[in-house]
């Protein structure tokens, strides 16, 4: 564990807490894409299958349970909780996110580090996570103005993988044979997809107004 990875995990944790805070306290998911949340639930479900077979550390297992629990409860809130579901913008959240799942699965079957069930699904979760934010970014474009909590959620979610890139650079120089091209490229693509959002986020943030 290094400071970059810890910062990345804490940023990721903060993003899900901000979203849970928004949904649970003000009972609103306005501006949040249910489709992105569904994709993230699949990402964690396919990435953390090894939670029962390989124990890395208490921290690792605890965080996996937090991410699994939060992603599925956010989907449940947005789908079935009356008050929250009412604030879901169904008409605008129309990105065909299931069209992202199949190509990621095919790509994982073609490009992976080891051809085993767990490893292929783990690789699939990497590819899917790289594009999972797309429905949310499209919804953002359509709803133009979003509240600060949603903006902070997206900012933290984009930032965590950026910190992971610093972690991979650090590990590459400090650990021999630490080379994971698939993870690195997927992480880079994922972070670059936020570039546009980060630009406007900083512009508005500096301007002191909401994110438009």
């Amino acid at each position: 564990m290094n400071i970059f990875r810890l910062a990345g995990d804490m940023t990721h944790l903060a993003s899900v807490l901000v979203l849970l805070l928004k949904i649970h306290t003000i009972k609103s998911c306005a501006g949040v894409s249910l489709r992105t949340q569904e994709l993230y639930a699949i990402v964690f479900a396919t990435r953390y299958l090894d939670i029962f077979t390989s124990f890395v550390s208490v921290y690792n297992t605890f965080m996996k349970l937090v991410f699994l629990g939060s992603s599925f409860s956010i989907v449940w809130y947005m789908r079935y909780h009356k008050a929250v579901h009412r604030t879901y913008d169904r008409e605008q959240d129309t990105f065909r996110h299931w069209f992202l799942v199949l190509p990621c699965l095919v790509l994982a079957l073609l490009i992976h580090e080891k051809f085993t069930f767990l490893e292929v699904l783990w690789t699939f979760s990497l590819y899917l996570e790289a594009v999972a934010i797309l429905p949310q970014l499209v919804l953002l474009q359509r709803t133009r103005n979003i509240d600060n909590l949603t903006g902070q959620y997206i900012f933290l979610l984009g930032g965590y993988r950026g910190l992971y890139i610093l972690n991979w650079i650090y590990r590459y120089f400090t650990e021999p044979h630490f080379v994971h091209w698939i993870t690195w490229i997927a992480g880079l693509v994922q972070t670059l997809l936020y570039a546009d959002f980060f630009y406007y986020y900083f512009l508005r943030f500096i301007g002191g107004r909401g994110v438009e």
Binding site: R5, D9, H12, D50, S54, V56, N60, M63, K64, F67, E113, K114, E119, W122, Y164, N167, H177, T183
Partner: peptide, 10 residues
Amino acid sequence: QDQSHSHDEL
């Protein structure tokens, strides 16, 4: 289990 394939990252 060979370390290279046990994923220690989240």
